[in-house]
């Protein structure tokens, strides 16, 4: 997957690869922004029941091509926020070669 269209105003895009794409039956979608990063997995779990245990717990996350640490959902000290226009990606364990 390459260039993804800009998300509409007030939204960010999230890209799904490999097992994450199979689980959601999507390659990408847009979600309302801003969203605290610690709430990302909860938001996805609400839409896709079971995705946290089956997929997300073994995935990494990038925002605008940079890897980020996803804080625990109850970590209210975390200031990280997904902003309008951001490109978030769910990165399952890789298997090139």
């Amino acid at each position: 997957m390459g260039a993804v269209p800009k998300p509409p105003e007030g939204h960010f895009s999230v890209l799904y690869f490999a097992s994450a794409s199979s689980f959601t039956s999507k390659e990408s979608e847009t979600l309302p922004a801003p969203l605290p990063l610690r709430k990302l997995f909860d938001t996805l779990e609400e839409k896709y029941n079971g995705i946290r245990d089956k997929i997300l717990n073994s995935c990494l996350v990038t925002i605008n091509l940079n890897y980020v640490d996803v804080p625990e959902p109850d970590d209210e000290s975390s200031q990280a926020v997904i902003k309008e226009g951001d490109e978030v990606a769910i990165i399952p364990p890789v298997s090139s070669g």
Binding site: F17, A18, S22, I91, P92, P93, V94, S95, S96, G97
Partner: peptide
Amino acid sequence: KERVEVWKKEEFEGEDGVWRAN
């Protein structure tokens, strides 16, 4: 193989493919 963001799916005869992890 350790790091590059590429994913391989093995397609078998008569069943669903499997996403492999290195």
